[in-house]
Each structure stands twice: as structure tokens, then as C-alpha cells.
Amino acid sequence: MTDLVVISLEAWDEVWRRNQHLVAGLLRVRPDLQVLFVEPPGDPVHAWRRKAPRDRGTGLRQVQDLEGAAGRLWAFQGTKWLPRRVDPGGDTRRARRVVQVAEELGFDSPVLWVNDPQGAEVLDITGWRSLYDITDDWLAAERPRREADRTAAQERRLLAHVDVVVVCSRALGSKTTADKPARLIPNAVDTRAYAQVHARPPDLPGLPYALYVGTLHRDRLDVDLCLETAKVVRGVGELVLLGPIALGNDDVKALVEGGVRLLGGRPASSVPAYLQHAAALVVPHVQSDFTDSLDPIKAYEYQASGRPVVATAVPGFRDSASPMVHVRRADAFPQAVASLVADPPVTSTRTGAPDWAERVADFAKVISHLEAR
């Protein structure tokens, strides 16, 4: 068996992102592969501060519902009991626990796949064969100084010591050096899911709607632009945001009071239906160094849906030659959305979107390269 430990930025749940699509695909094409998927730790103190349910880690569990991977996929979530300024050794202790769990599962000299920069702590301890899959430029995101410095130090260690660097966008390739060039493996979409016609989900508004799909976070989402768009669209339709909510309570309150419908996260299998029935798809993203580093999965999902798109000038959309993609400045964005909602075009031919199977094949080559080391 080949053992793989994945240090992920997201949990293994029903809202699939890059890591889950790739890991699931690898498990399907590699029956000799077994995976420990390490989720971000639960953080009870942070949850208490946000007045959210206490977020204690779930420990180790076997993922049972992934077709073709029976007995070969485990997820592990530890717990961050105290803030780092109180418990500066917590990251190292949690990394040692990950190594201990891998040993308990019988993983023998696994390949380490780091997506969350905190995976540097595991690499420091183990020296396992490793790859760093860079999907976001967290150094360009707005973060408290202490957090930004810690992330920068972790990323420096990763770039210096991993065997392979993978990036999802060309912009992220600038992080690497001539002696360790990055391998570009962009995102993709499950084209088979979008080739089917899906029934309209029952939790959608009765009016035509403009839809945004993605995690709701200030790093990406322009909340003020969403509010202005909802105001202009009101009367002909509704603005709907679909995805995990990582906004502050004040932002959530403002959006709800402004007439924006927040649906929260939905299983990946149900997302195509929401896109297919939208009058228009929207990308009200802020324009920043951080968003310039992204290869948004929604660009592929929107393309596969065949629905019209209104986007700010961000990667995945600003260079599109498709007549279905309308790139607009913030001052013209709301009216462009309202026009499409009032008179939605028919669905265009869904062509050209790359499938996750292509990216899985590319990652399989990287894993094989590391196995041979």
C-alpha cells in the first residue's frame, strides 16, 4: 500500500473543494492508496468568542460513504484548546498527534501533502517525502501581524524543504525559485454532474435569482457590492449566496436585512441544480493581491452550467472570451445583474470545461514521482 497524509485547509464534509475532488479521484484510480485526511483543528475558544457552538475536534473517523474507497480513507481533527499566545507549543503538539495517528493506522513512511501551511510543523518533525499544494496566497490576505508572520515562516520552511511544489494558478508560481520550479495543476469541475438536467431545488426563491457560489468570506466577497446588487435587483428577482458562511455577525445581519438570501453550504452533488436554474451567476469579488492569486473553482462550475455570468475583473473571468461572461466595474455591476435577471437568456452549450479526472491524473504523476524517491 501507498500511504498519503493530507494536511488540508478544509474539513472533509459535503461541501467539496479541490482537496476532496483530488483525493477522491486518486483513491478511485489507485486501489493501493490509503489516505489520512487531516482537517483544521477544532477551536473551542474561537467558537465561544463568536457565540457559535463549541468547536471541539472530532478525533479520528473512517470515511464510509466514498464510493470505491472502502476502508482506505480516514479523517482526523484535533483540538486547539488555547490561543497560541497562551500555548505557543500547541502547533508542535498537534503535529506530533498527527504523526502518532498515522503510526496507529500503520502508515509506513507516508507521502505528506501539505495544503495548509501549518503542515510545516509535521514536515519539521518527520522529514517525510512531501509536496506543497499552494492554492491561495495567504501572505497577501489581510491578517493580524502575528498570524501573518507565523504563516510566512511556515511557508518559507515548506518551500525550502518539500520535494515538490504544486500551484493552482500561474500567479502563485512566483513563490518558487529556479532550482525548485512549481508544477501548475489548475482546478476543474465534475463535467458529468453538469451534463445532467437537475430539478429546481425547493429552497430557492420563487422569483428569478442571481446566484453566487463559494465560501462567504471578506477575503473574496465584496459585501457592499452584494448589498447594492440586491437593492437594484429587488423587484425583478433576488440575490442568493450559496456556500459556507465565514463572515462576521455584523456582515451576516446586514446582508439578511438588505434582502440577500443566504443558503449556507450544500452538498457538492446538489450544487449543479442551483446553478442550472439561476437567471444569472455572479462574482462580486474584491480586487486585491489575494484574489489575483486564485484559480476559482466557480469559474469552471459557472462555465459548465451554461448560464450567463457577471463578474468583477478577477482571475477566471476577466480574460474570458465567452459571450456569456460579462466583466463589469463595481459601479456597473448591479445594473448588469438586474438586466440579466429581468430577461435571462437561454442556457448556452456547455463545452470546454476541464474535468477533475485530468487533474487527478496530473497529481497521480506527482505522487508516483515522490514514491520513487
Rank of each mutant, 00 (worst) to 15 (best):
V240F: 03
G214K: 00
V256K: 15
F290K: 07
P205N: 03
V271P: 11
L263A: 08
L275Q: 15
Q276L: 10
S269A: 15
L262C: 01
L247M: 02
H277F: 05
Y274P: 14
V223K: 05
T291E: 03
G259C: 06
A273R: 09
L294N: 03
H217S: 15
I297N: 01
D250S: 14
D295M: 00
A278E: 09
V240A: 06
R261A: 06
H217N: 14
V256Y: 07
A299H: 08
R218T: 03
L227I: 00
K298A: 00
R266A: 14
D219E: 03
L225E: 02
N249F: 00
S288H: 04
G237H: 08
L247H: 09
P272Y: 09
V286K: 14
P284T: 11
L275E: 14
G214V: 06
Y212G: 09
T229C: 13
R218A: 10
D292A: 14
V282D: 10
P267I: 12
G214H: 00
K231W: 03
D289R: 15
G214S: 03
Y274C: 10
V286S: 08
D224A: 12
E257M: 05
T215S: 13
K298L: 04
D203R: 11
L207C: 04
L216N: 10
N249I: 00
H217C: 15
Y212S: 12
P208C: 12
R261S: 06
V286F: 02
P272I: 05
E238Q: 15
G214Q: 04
N249A: 15
A278T: 12
D251Y: 12
L216T: 08
P244A: 09
L207Q: 15
L227R: 01
V256M: 01
V240L: 08
V286C: 10
P205V: 01
L255F: 05
L204Q: 03
R220N: 03
T291N: 03
L204N: 08
V233K: 08
L294R: 13
L294Y: 12
P205K: 05
R220M: 11
V223C: 00
G264V: 12
R261N: 01
D222C: 06
L221M: 05
I245M: 10
D219F: 10
L211R: 06
Y212H: 14
